[in-house]
Design a protein around this nucleic acid. Structure first.
Lengths: 122, 122
DNA sequence: GGTAGTAGTTACCAAATGGTGACTAGGCCT
DNA sequence: AGGCCTAGTCACCATTTGGTAACTACTACC
């Protein structure tokens, strides 16, 4: 009764229901880690250059507000992607840089960026 | 005047301002491609299994609403990550699967997921 | 004639998100 | 005395986002 071997038939008449479930999706954490505007930019500038101070980050990431930059830096420090070095004094100096895992993530994301280059321009 | 060669000094007294700018960040497109809840889950279930129909996706991605699933599928089709196969008839059958680039992205993201496993549990 | 089944669409609402501008500490410079 | 500097913080507002529930078309089946 199922002699149709066309692509459509194969695709739309699976013998069994899917066994996959998104509940075990290993990308959820990655998604939470990178969610929010500017996160990828922060990761990128820190990965491409050297550690940067708060003011430097505000400058090189054109358009980001102090509020959101602070939020991102706090969160990324909390998750272990970046470290924060607070030098006491007046005025204070605070420097941020990638951790080892942060660097690995930066490198991996750069590779992914090269994949998306294969897509037609938007 | 700058004989302090400690890490802090090096980090916080750079000789030059940073030359990096986030304006050329190659990860922006990737960010737009993957933004929004459920996007990674959709990519994952399609990458792990076989092409799936709309109803299957709603089932395996527990909690997603038809509205958002439609939005994601439309957008991912538009960007070239997935294809859509509409089989006419009543009731209609619509099947979705990853394109070649979509598959590459899925594979790369899986690798990234393994990196985040190195981070301490949240 | 009522119901089921698929793949959506629509209007509406609540929550999350991000931007803006004002404000802070505390020492140094004019 | 006033202003500048850094690294934020805070209150407030507008936009964006995602969820919910009802509704659609079309045929077949009971």
């Amino acid at each position: 009764m199922n002699s149709d071997t066309s692509l459509q038939s194969i695709l739309t008449n699976p013998a069994h229901p899917p066994e996959i479930s998104a509940k075990t999706c290993p990308l959820e954490r990655l998604g939470r880690l990178l969610r929010g505007t500017w996160t990828l930019q922060v990761l990128w500038v820190l990965g491409e250059g050297r550690p940067l101070r708060f003011g430097d980050l505000r400058t090189v990431i054109e358009g980001i507000s102090a509020k959101v930059l602070t939020e991102r830096l706090r969160f990324m420090e909390h998750t272990g992607l970046i470290w924060r070095c607070h030098e006491e004094g007046v005025p204070p100096k605070v420097t941020y840089g990638l951790t080892e895992v942060g660097t690995e993530l930066h490198d991996g994301l750069k590779r992914l960026g090269r994949i998306t280059d294969k897509l037609p321009p938007e």
